[in-house]
């Protein structure tokens, strides 16, 4: 297996160990020389920096796009044109029509397009989805999701909504996808954003916070909040899933499995690294993607359609936040399930 890894930022660094674990040879390509740096860090592993994109695409099994969102479409279309399977970081694109275009090209070329909605592979979320699917909670009624942390400073493009789509499109799209995964398609969105959407990078910390309410075709309602917060805002995700017959709650910060309660000095984001208690969700995700290339390898839990719909809902939320109005959505997917469990979502005529 030969993987073309495009990008060498945070997500590429999360994916790379997963690919190596799966036995892949990885060629890294970037436009800013960071591929060489990443490959050098992995000296002794099967990681090389590629000199050109064309060269890399010509000699790989699949392409892993881990670049800023505005570049996804061009790179994905190039990968598809080369006949390669594609896994693409979320959001697939900044608008649903671009996402549709990528998916249509992949379908026409007969290659896989896997939007990397990795939260579906986080064990707590996967366990919750299984419980919902088994009917443990009865009919879902009202869902809440929160996601927040310090404002991303490691790459300047996050600060610019024209590139990242802002906190709704870049961060809340995770929980938008999870809400749709468990409660089905969304027909109405209302959202509001407060604070500094476009960070200037000044000395004063700039916080942006957003709230969105989704109404699913099933009647389920979901509340999603996103926060790019102060520099000391601990990264944390929570969910609360309430149905007619039960309730599930999760707080990522309350169940670490392992904590360091003292290490002699107070270190900000440094010191002894936390030990992962479960397999990396990125590895789980890549394994499922890789298996899907094989005949009978199984359908990944994320489809291209899922990636498109997450973008469509996020786009509607951004529009609602701008206009103050609720936005109605029309999707082409049947929501045939009373419980909102999309165990067997079927495409209908579009």
């Amino acid at each position: 297996m030969r993987i073309a890894l495009i990008g060498a930022g945070g997500i590429a660094r999360a994916h790379l160990p997963g690919w190596l674990e799966l036995g892949a040879r990885v060629g890294v390509y970037t436009v800013d020389g960071s591929a060489e740096k990443l490959a050098a860090e992995y000296a002794g592993h099967d990681v090389v920096a590629a000199a050109s994109l064309g060269e890399l695409l010509a000699d790989c099994t699949a392409v892993d796009i881990c670049t800023p969102t505005p570049t996804h479409k061009e790179l994905a279309l190039a990968a598809v044109a080369a006949g390669r399977h594609v896994i693409c970081e979320k959001p697939l694109a900044l608008n649903a029509s671009d996402a549709e275009e990528i998916a249509a090209a992949a379908e026409a070329a007969g290659v896989r397009l896997h939007p990397a909605h990795v939260v579906r592979y986080f064990p707590a979320y996967a366990a919750m989805r299984r419980a919902v699917g088994s009917g443990d909670l009865g009919d879902l009624a009202v869902l809440r999701f929160t996601r927040g942390g310090a404002r991303p400073q490691w790459a300047p493009w996050f600060a610019d909504p024209a590139q990242s789509g802002g906190v709704i499109m870049d961060l809340m799209v995770h929980d938008i996808d999870i809400a749709r995964w468990i409660a089905g398609d969304v027909v109405r969105v209302h959202a509001q954003t407060r604070g500094v959407e476009h960070a200037t990078g000044g000395t004063q910390a700039e916080v942006v916070s957003a709230t969105a309410v989704l109404t699913h075709a099933s009647g389920v309602i979901s509340h999603i909040t996103g926060l790019w917060g102060l520099p000391d805002q601990q990264f944390r995700t929570t969910f609360r899933i309430a149905g007619s017959h039960g309730l599930l709650r999760h707080d990522s910060t309350s169940v670490p499995g392992y904590r360091i309660t003292a290490q002699g000095v107070r270190a900000a984001n440094e010191g002894i690294p936390s030990s992962p208690m479960t397999e990396s969700p990125y590895l789980s995700e890549l394994r499922e993607f890789a298996a899907s290339w094989q005949e009978g390898g199984g359908e990944p839990r994320v489809s291209a359609r899922d990636g498109i719909e997450a973008v469509r809902i996020a786009e509607a939320a951004v529009e609602s936040s701008r206009t103050g109005r609720a936005v109605e959505l029309r999707t082409g997917i049947a929501s045939d399930i009373k419980t909102g469990i999309a165990s067997d979502i079927k495409e209908v005529t579009r």
């Binding site: 009919d139 209302h190 149905g243 007619s244």
Partner: peptide
């Protein structure tokens, strides 16, 4: 200033 609300009765249906 304004209020947006969504409700359902899936609980205790």
């Amino acid at each position: 200033v304004d209020v947006y609300a969504q409700t359902n009765n899936r609980m205790y249906a």
